[in-house]
């Protein structure tokens, strides 16, 4: 309100009254605010905040130099490079194939498609250690799939290719499940209009549908990548765990812990935590984008 505004009747409200901040002014008709918020904050503090504070505090035992020397160590750098490149490659492949799968599951009807749909979530439900030993057996040189590649001199298990395969397995459902609901809700009229105006089906797909999917694709890619970088159980059996060659970062953290190098383990852990926070921010931004698009 500006000073030039005409005087309003005050209805008995003192002239210098200012309403409380909107975030404090709530319609607390319902009970249980203090109890539920208190319990929630206590639980989150004990389970997440205090433990993460311990992680953030530990790397500085030997100062900034100690932290830096851990991160620039050749073995740590090699593991970070391996973890991020295999996770990125797996997420890119999942982005393409996952989108095709989501498309087929929402657009086509054929016998067994519902069952196929339910099985997409198997990597969420199957314990990672179970997936790990199954993939290792399958892709070993005497396994069902590994033996097909062995005659060409291609080893999959115990090499970075094996890590890549395991990360494709754990990441696939994230892309499918992010894209599927958006594709299912896509307005049929927009597509039909494009087709009626003479667009070829592939043009409709690329020019009309793909831009609408962009936020969901970003979400799926980020979730798939986040999971893949931190993945442990399904990878360690097939990875081979050779320092500098096939040793992933989570494995290196465990090795440092076993050597009682807590500060070193925490340094690498802190980098991975910061990475998780960044990717979470990207996912939240993508969700906002999707939400705004839905309202536009």
């Amino acid at each position: 309100m500006t000073a030039s505004a005409p005087a309003q009747p005050t209805n008995g409200v003192p002239e210098n009254f200012t309403p409380p901040h909107p975030s404090l002014h709530t319609n607390r008709v319902l009970p249980g605010f203090k109890v539920s918020l208190g319990f929630t904050i206590a639980y989150v503090s004990l389970i997440v905040l205090i433990p993460l504070a311990a992680l953030a505090a530990r790397p500085w035992e030997h100062g900034w130099a100690g932290f830096w020397s851990v991160l620039t160590d050749g073995r740590v750098l090699a593991s970070l490079r391996l973890s991020f490149t295999t996770a990125g490659a797996a997420a890119v492949l999942n982005l393409f194939v996952g989108t095709i799968i989501a498309w087929v599951l929402t657009r086509y009807k054929f016998p067994g498609v519902k069952i196929l749909d339910a099985f997409v979530d198997l990597p969420f439900a199957l314990p990672t250690a179970v997936a790990g030993i199954a993939l290792c057996t399958l892709y070993a040189t005497n396994g069902w799939v590994g033996s097909l590649f062995a005659p060409f001199g291609i080893k999959i298990a115990y090499t970075p290719i094996g890590i890549f395969i395991a990360l494709v397995f754990v990441g696939l459902p994230f892309v499918v499940r992010s894209v599927q609901p958006v594709l299912a809700d896509f307005d049929a009229e927009v597509e039909e209009a494009a087709l009626t105006l003479g667009a070829a089906p592939w043009q409709t797909a690329i020019r009309v549908i793909l831009p609408g999917l962009a936020p969901a694709l970003l979400t799926g890619f980020s979730l798939s990548m986040a999971r893949a970088v931190g993945e442990y159980g399904s990878v360690i059996f097939i990875a081979g765990n050779m320092p500098y060659i096939s040793e992933i970062t989570p494995q290196l953290i465990i090795i440092k812990l076993q050597e009682y190098d807590y500060a070193g383990a925490a340094s690498v852990g802190l980098i991975m935590l910061l990475w998780s926070i960044v990717i979470l921010a990207i996912i939240n931004a993508a969700q906002m984008w999707l939400f705004q698009r839905g309202r536009a």
């Binding site: 311990a54 999971r227 989570p250 953290i253 383990a265 991975m272 998780s276």
Partner: peptide, 12 residues
């Protein structure tokens, strides 16, 4: 989004 290994490490 955090690695399960981090979820164990913090308790150590």
């Amino acid at each position: 989004t955090i690695s399960p290994v981090i979820a164990g490490l913090v308790w150590m």
